[in-house]
Simulated assay, not measured.
Amino acid sequence: MARLLIVHHTASPTTQAMLEAVLEGARTDDVEGVEVLTRPALGATAPDLLAADAVVLGTPANIGYMSGALKHFFDTVYYPCLADTAGLPYGLYVHGNSDTAGAVRAVESVAKGMGWRRHRPALAVTGELTRADREACWELGAVTALAAVEREGYHQE
């Protein structure tokens, strides 16, 4: 069975709502054969990442950067996972009160350095979460779950 790992720092009601929408999409009945694992960024480990076929990262934009918790996750997994996760599909959602560009840029820079493959453009939301934003989060979860299934199938051939 494929594994989708969702690593998040849920520090606000908005990032919690985004996480919940991503989870709903990832667990949709339309995508079969995927196990969804959710880990807070401070608790996610290298073995969690090494067992994943795709990953969704979620973070608030704090002072123009990803959360310290997500940065800690990257610091923890970078060297133990660098060689073994090249090509890993990933998705990203970010919430900021006024700007998300620095956080998106920082996460994408680290992911590129790890050799991961961005599955779709980052979902960046500023201000209040709209219905369209929730739907975009749902879609991010669903398509990244599908990417996990496709990658898992690729590795079995």
Rank of each mutant, 00 (worst) to 15 (best):
S109H: 12
L140S: 08
L37A: 13
T100M: 10
V36Q: 15
W116E: 00
T144N: 03
D30I: 01
N97M: 06
L23V: 15
G68A: 12
D48M: 00
G68T: 07
M18Y: 09
A132R: 09
M114Q: 13
T76P: 05
V36C: 15
A83L: 11
Y90K: 08
A103K: 05
K112W: 08
G64A: 08
A26I: 13
T38Q: 15
H9L: 10
A69W: 03
D99G: 03
E157L: 03
V94W: 06
A21N: 10
V55L: 04
P121G: 06
F73S: 08
D29L: 10
T45G: 03
P121R: 14
V107T: 13
T14M: 08
A122S: 14
L92W: 06
P40K: 06
L82S: 11
L146H: 01
P47H: 04
L146R: 06
M1T: 12
A83G: 05
N62D: 12
D99H: 07
G127C: 02
A142C: 04
G91Y: 04
A46Y: 05
Y90A: 05
P80R: 01
R131I: 10
H8E: 15
W116Y: 05
T38M: 14
E128I: 00
A122P: 05
H119L: 09
M114Y: 04
S109C: 08
A86S: 09
A83Y: 07
A54V: 03
A52Q: 04
E150V: 02
D75W: 12
G87K: 07
D133S: 02
D30K: 13
R118P: 00
W116R: 01
T28H: 11
C81N: 02
T14I: 13
I63F: 15
G25W: 05
G96A: 07
A17N: 13
M18F: 11
E32G: 05
M1Y: 06
L23Q: 15
A61H: 00
T144Q: 04
I63W: 14
Q16G: 08
W138L: 13
V104T: 12
M1D: 12
Y78N: 13
N97I: 02
H72V: 09
